[in-house]
Protein backbone atom coordinates (compact mmCIF):
# COMPACT_ATOMS: atom_id res chain seq x y z
CA UNK A 1 0.00 0.00 0.00
CA UNK A 2 1.29 3.44 -0.83
CA UNK A 3 1.04 6.49 1.34
CA UNK A 4 -1.31 9.21 0.14
CA UNK A 5 -0.35 11.61 2.92
CA UNK A 6 2.97 11.75 4.65
CA UNK A 7 4.05 14.20 7.32
CA UNK A 8 7.60 15.14 8.13
CA UNK A 9 8.47 16.68 11.52
CA UNK A 10 5.07 18.30 11.44
CA UNK A 11 4.84 20.91 14.20
CA UNK A 12 2.39 23.64 15.05
CA UNK A 13 2.85 26.18 17.79
CA UNK A 14 0.13 28.65 18.72
CA UNK A 15 1.14 32.17 19.64
CA UNK A 16 4.71 31.67 18.53
CA UNK A 17 7.12 33.99 20.35
CA UNK A 18 4.49 35.24 22.78
CA UNK A 19 4.11 34.43 26.48
CA UNK A 20 1.13 32.23 25.55
CA UNK A 21 3.19 30.01 23.26
CA UNK A 22 1.75 26.51 23.16
CA UNK A 23 2.79 23.64 20.96
CA UNK A 24 -0.32 21.84 19.77
CA UNK A 25 1.35 19.35 17.46
CA UNK A 26 4.98 18.43 17.81
CA UNK A 27 7.25 16.60 15.43
CA UNK A 28 4.73 14.29 13.85
CA UNK A 29 6.05 11.77 11.34
CA UNK A 30 3.30 9.55 10.04
CA UNK A 31 2.06 7.99 6.84
CA UNK A 32 -1.57 7.60 5.90
CA UNK A 33 -2.21 4.86 3.38
CA UNK A 34 -4.23 5.20 0.21
CA UNK A 35 -7.74 3.86 0.76
CA UNK A 36 -7.55 3.23 4.50
CA UNK A 37 -10.02 4.22 7.19
CA UNK A 38 -7.94 5.91 9.87
CA UNK A 39 -9.35 6.76 13.28
CA UNK A 40 -7.76 9.60 15.22
CA UNK A 41 -8.36 9.63 18.96
CA UNK A 42 -7.13 11.73 21.83
CA UNK A 43 -8.81 13.90 24.39
CA UNK A 44 -9.55 17.60 23.91
CA UNK A 45 -6.32 19.52 23.65
CA UNK A 46 -4.30 16.56 22.37
CA UNK A 47 -3.74 18.40 19.11
CA UNK A 48 -5.84 16.15 16.90
CA UNK A 49 -7.95 18.94 15.41
CA UNK A 50 -4.90 21.08 14.69
CA UNK A 51 -3.23 18.07 13.12
CA UNK A 52 -6.05 17.31 10.69
CA UNK A 53 -6.44 20.97 9.75
CA UNK A 54 -2.82 20.99 8.63
CA UNK A 55 -3.48 18.08 6.27
CA UNK A 56 -5.40 20.28 3.85
CA UNK A 57 -3.51 23.47 4.43
CA UNK A 58 -6.13 25.29 6.49
CA UNK A 59 -3.39 25.76 9.04
CA UNK A 60 0.18 26.23 7.88
CA UNK A 61 2.62 24.25 10.01
CA UNK A 62 5.14 26.31 11.93
CA UNK A 63 7.69 23.62 11.17
CA UNK A 64 7.80 20.50 9.05
CA UNK A 65 5.94 19.42 5.95
CA UNK A 66 2.81 17.70 4.72
CA UNK A 67 3.15 15.69 1.52
CA UNK A 68 0.10 14.83 -0.51
CA UNK A 69 1.07 12.13 -3.03
CA UNK A 70 4.68 13.21 -2.64
CA UNK A 71 4.17 16.95 -3.13
CA UNK A 72 4.60 19.44 -0.31
CA UNK A 73 1.19 21.10 -0.08
CA UNK A 74 2.48 24.37 1.34
CA UNK A 75 5.14 24.78 -1.30
CA UNK A 76 2.88 26.72 -3.61
CA UNK A 77 0.22 28.75 -1.85
CA UNK A 78 -1.71 29.15 -5.11
CA UNK A 79 -2.20 25.41 -5.30
CA UNK A 80 -3.69 25.23 -1.80
CA UNK A 81 -7.24 25.62 -3.03
CA UNK A 82 -6.74 22.56 -5.23
CA UNK A 83 -5.33 20.65 -2.27
CA UNK A 84 -8.49 21.42 -0.33
CA UNK A 85 -10.61 19.89 -3.08
CA UNK A 86 -8.54 16.72 -2.84
CA UNK A 87 -8.51 16.62 0.94
CA UNK A 88 -12.07 17.35 2.05
CA UNK A 89 -12.70 18.46 5.58
CA UNK A 90 -15.92 18.15 7.57
CA UNK A 91 -15.73 20.19 10.74
CA UNK A 92 -17.41 19.51 14.05
CA UNK A 93 -21.06 20.65 13.95
CA UNK A 94 -20.80 21.24 10.18
CA UNK A 95 -24.45 22.29 9.98
CA UNK A 96 -23.34 25.73 11.18
CA UNK A 97 -21.74 26.35 7.81
CA UNK A 98 -24.94 26.03 5.76
CA UNK A 99 -25.90 29.30 4.10
CA UNK A 100 -27.54 28.88 0.70
CA UNK A 101 -31.22 29.26 -0.12
CA UNK A 102 -31.65 25.59 -0.84
CA UNK A 103 -29.94 22.41 0.26
CA UNK A 104 -29.21 21.70 -3.40
CA UNK A 105 -27.31 24.97 -3.85
CA UNK A 106 -25.49 24.52 -0.58
CA UNK A 107 -24.20 21.09 -1.51
CA UNK A 108 -23.19 22.60 -4.86
CA UNK A 109 -21.09 25.35 -3.25
CA UNK A 110 -17.90 23.28 -3.02
CA UNK A 111 -18.03 21.73 -6.49
CA UNK A 112 -19.10 25.13 -7.85
CA UNK A 113 -15.92 26.63 -6.46
CA UNK A 114 -14.05 23.89 -8.31
CA UNK A 115 -15.51 25.24 -11.54
CA UNK A 116 -17.89 22.36 -12.09
CA UNK A 117 -21.16 23.28 -13.82
CA UNK A 118 -24.20 21.86 -15.58
CA UNK A 119 -25.03 18.18 -15.62
CA UNK A 120 -21.79 17.25 -13.95
CA UNK A 121 -22.63 19.51 -11.00
CA UNK A 122 -26.16 18.13 -10.79
CA UNK A 123 -24.89 14.58 -10.83
CA UNK A 124 -22.39 15.31 -8.06
CA UNK A 125 -24.95 17.00 -5.85
CA UNK A 126 -27.42 14.15 -6.22
CA UNK A 127 -24.90 11.42 -5.64
CA UNK A 128 -23.45 13.20 -2.58
CA UNK A 129 -26.94 13.56 -1.15
CA UNK A 130 -27.57 9.88 -1.80
CA UNK A 131 -24.32 8.88 -0.12
CA UNK A 132 -25.32 10.66 3.07
CA UNK A 133 -28.86 9.30 2.97
CA UNK A 134 -30.45 12.67 2.33
CA UNK A 135 -33.84 12.26 0.67
CA UNK A 136 -34.02 13.97 -2.72
CA UNK A 137 -37.24 15.79 -1.87
CA UNK A 138 -35.30 17.74 0.76
CA UNK A 139 -32.92 19.17 -1.83
CA UNK A 140 -35.18 22.06 -2.78
CA UNK A 141 -35.86 23.01 0.83
CA UNK A 142 -34.04 25.72 2.74
CA UNK A 143 -31.27 24.16 4.80
CA UNK A 144 -32.62 26.01 7.82
CA UNK A 145 -35.90 24.10 7.62
CA UNK A 146 -34.27 20.71 8.04
CA UNK A 147 -34.08 18.74 11.25
CA UNK A 148 -30.80 18.58 13.15
CA UNK A 149 -29.80 15.22 11.72
CA UNK A 150 -30.74 16.23 8.18
CA UNK A 151 -28.72 19.44 8.43
CA UNK A 152 -25.72 17.40 9.48
CA UNK A 153 -26.14 15.15 6.45
CA UNK A 154 -26.55 18.09 4.10
CA UNK A 155 -23.36 19.67 5.40
CA UNK A 156 -21.41 16.44 5.02
CA UNK A 157 -22.84 16.01 1.52
CA UNK A 158 -21.45 19.47 0.72
CA UNK A 159 -17.93 18.15 1.25
CA UNK A 160 -18.52 14.73 -0.32
CA UNK A 161 -19.79 16.53 -3.46
CA UNK A 162 -16.24 17.76 -4.05
CA UNK A 163 -15.36 14.07 -4.44
CA UNK A 164 -12.18 14.30 -2.38
CA UNK A 165 -9.57 11.54 -2.38
CA UNK A 166 -9.15 12.02 1.33
CA UNK A 167 -12.13 12.84 3.52
CA UNK A 168 -11.49 14.13 7.02
CA UNK A 169 -14.38 14.11 9.48
CA UNK A 170 -14.00 15.82 12.85
CA UNK A 171 -16.54 14.36 15.31
CA UNK A 172 -19.21 13.89 12.65
CA UNK A 173 -21.67 12.33 15.10
CA UNK A 174 -21.28 14.83 17.94
CA UNK A 175 -24.60 15.70 19.54
CA UNK A 176 -26.64 13.11 17.62
CA UNK A 177 -28.67 10.51 19.47
CA UNK A 178 -27.63 6.82 19.32
CA UNK A 179 -29.84 6.11 16.35
CA UNK A 180 -28.63 9.12 14.39
CA UNK A 181 -25.04 8.31 15.24
CA UNK A 182 -25.31 4.68 14.13
CA UNK A 183 -27.01 5.61 10.87
CA UNK A 184 -24.48 8.29 10.04
CA UNK A 185 -21.50 6.05 10.75
CA UNK A 186 -22.97 3.24 8.66
CA UNK A 187 -23.49 5.70 5.83
CA UNK A 188 -19.89 6.91 6.04
CA UNK A 189 -18.62 3.34 6.08
CA UNK A 190 -20.80 2.52 3.09
CA UNK A 191 -19.47 5.55 1.23
CA UNK A 192 -15.92 4.52 2.04
CA UNK A 193 -16.51 1.03 0.69
CA UNK A 194 -18.06 2.28 -2.54
CA UNK A 195 -15.76 5.18 -3.23
CA UNK A 196 -12.65 3.39 -1.89
CA UNK A 197 -11.10 6.66 -0.78
CA UNK A 198 -9.11 7.46 2.31
CA UNK A 199 -11.10 8.50 5.35
CA UNK A 200 -9.75 10.10 8.50
CA UNK A 201 -12.27 10.09 11.34
CA UNK A 202 -11.55 12.13 14.44
CA UNK A 203 -13.67 11.06 17.39
CA UNK A 204 -13.91 10.84 21.15
CA UNK A 205 -16.13 7.82 20.92
CA UNK A 206 -14.11 4.65 21.20
CA UNK A 207 -17.17 2.56 20.35
CA UNK A 208 -17.57 4.42 17.05
CA UNK A 209 -13.91 4.22 16.12
CA UNK A 210 -13.81 0.53 17.03
CA UNK A 211 -16.64 -0.12 14.62
CA UNK A 212 -15.22 1.56 11.56
CA UNK A 213 -11.46 2.19 11.63
CA UNK A 214 -8.76 -0.01 10.05
CA UNK A 215 -5.98 1.74 11.93
CA UNK A 216 -5.93 4.18 14.80
CA UNK A 217 -3.70 7.12 15.53
CA UNK A 218 -3.66 7.95 19.22
CA UNK A 219 -2.59 11.49 19.96
CA UNK A 220 -1.48 12.73 23.33
CA UNK A 221 -0.05 16.17 24.10
CA UNK A 222 0.63 16.90 20.47
CA UNK A 223 2.50 13.68 19.84
CA UNK A 224 1.58 10.54 17.93
CA UNK A 225 1.51 8.12 20.82
CA UNK A 226 0.36 5.00 18.96
CA UNK A 227 -0.34 4.28 15.29
CA UNK A 228 -1.43 0.73 14.75
CA UNK A 229 -4.23 -1.61 13.69
CA UNK A 230 -7.44 -0.98 15.63
CA UNK A 231 -7.30 -4.32 17.41
CA UNK A 232 -3.72 -3.80 18.57
CA UNK A 233 -4.49 -0.31 19.84
CA UNK A 234 -7.45 -1.37 21.95
CA UNK A 235 -5.47 -4.26 23.36
CA UNK A 236 -3.42 -1.61 25.19
CA UNK A 237 -6.21 -0.55 27.52
CA UNK A 238 -3.97 0.46 30.39
CA UNK A 239 -1.80 2.67 28.25
CA UNK A 240 -4.86 4.40 26.81
CA UNK A 241 -6.32 4.88 30.25
CA UNK A 242 -3.17 6.67 31.33
CA UNK A 243 -3.81 9.19 28.54
CA UNK A 244 -7.32 9.73 29.82
CA UNK A 245 -8.93 7.61 27.09
CA UNK A 246 -11.47 4.87 27.62
CA UNK A 247 -11.68 1.72 25.57
CA UNK A 248 -15.11 0.30 24.69
CA UNK A 249 -16.90 -1.32 27.60
CA UNK A 250 -17.08 -4.69 25.85
CA UNK A 251 -13.31 -4.64 25.25
CA UNK A 252 -12.74 -3.96 28.94
CA UNK A 253 -15.03 -6.81 29.91
CA UNK A 254 -13.34 -9.35 27.62
CA UNK A 255 -9.91 -8.18 28.73
CA UNK A 256 -10.82 -8.79 32.35
CA UNK A 257 -12.13 -12.20 31.42
CA UNK A 258 -8.84 -12.98 29.73
CA UNK A 259 -6.95 -11.79 32.80
CA UNK A 260 -9.10 -14.20 34.83
CA UNK A 261 -7.94 -17.07 32.66
CA UNK A 262 -10.78 -17.33 30.15
CA UNK A 263 -9.31 -18.24 26.73
CA UNK A 264 -10.84 -15.50 24.58
CA UNK A 265 -9.12 -13.79 21.63
CA UNK A 266 -7.34 -10.47 22.35
CA UNK A 267 -8.75 -7.14 21.30
CA UNK A 268 -12.46 -7.83 20.95
CA UNK A 269 -14.09 -4.62 19.77
CA UNK A 270 -17.81 -5.14 19.39
CA UNK A 271 -20.61 -6.90 21.23
CA UNK A 272 -21.13 -9.10 18.17
CA UNK A 273 -17.51 -10.30 18.26
CA UNK A 274 -17.67 -10.98 21.97
CA UNK A 275 -20.93 -12.85 21.56
CA UNK A 276 -19.53 -15.10 18.84
CA UNK A 277 -16.33 -15.77 20.81
CA UNK A 278 -18.10 -16.61 24.07
CA UNK A 279 -20.72 -18.74 22.33
CA UNK A 280 -18.01 -20.67 20.54
CA UNK A 281 -16.16 -21.22 23.78
CA UNK A 282 -19.29 -22.50 25.49
CA UNK A 283 -20.05 -24.82 22.58
CA UNK A 284 -16.52 -26.18 22.55
CA UNK A 285 -16.79 -27.01 26.20
CA UNK A 286 -20.12 -28.65 25.52
CA UNK A 287 -21.98 -26.32 27.82
CA UNK A 288 -24.46 -25.17 25.23
Amino acid sequence: MSAIIRTENLTYTYGLKTPLEKTAVSDLNIEINEGEFLGVIGHTGSGKSTFVQMLNGLITPTKGKVYLRGTDINQNKKELQRVRFQVGMVFQYPEYQLFEETVYKDIGFGPGNMGITGDDLDRRIRSAAAFTGLKSKLLQKSPFDLSGGEKRRAAIAGVIAMDPDVLILDEPAAGLDPQGRDNLLSQILEYHKKRKNTIILVSHSMEDIARVADRILVMNRGKAEILDKTRNVFAQGHRLKKMGLEIPQITKVTQKLIENGIPLPQGILTVEEAYVAIAQLLKKEGRL
Partner: peptide, 16 residues
Protein backbone atom coordinates in the same frame (compact mmCIF):
# COMPACT_ATOMS: atom_id res chain seq x y z
CA UNK B 1 -14.18 32.24 17.57
CA UNK B 2 -17.22 31.15 15.63
CA UNK B 3 -16.27 33.43 12.74
CA UNK B 4 -12.87 31.79 12.59
CA UNK B 5 -14.46 28.36 12.50
CA UNK B 6 -16.95 29.24 9.78
CA UNK B 7 -14.21 30.84 7.71
CA UNK B 8 -12.12 27.70 7.93
CA UNK B 9 -15.10 25.54 7.06
CA UNK B 10 -15.94 27.58 3.95
CA UNK B 11 -12.30 27.72 2.94
CA UNK B 12 -12.29 23.95 3.15
CA UNK B 13 -15.11 24.02 0.61
CA UNK B 14 -12.93 26.10 -1.66
CA UNK B 15 -14.28 29.55 -0.81
CA UNK B 16 -11.77 32.11 -2.00
Amino acid sequence: EETDKIMLAQKARGAD
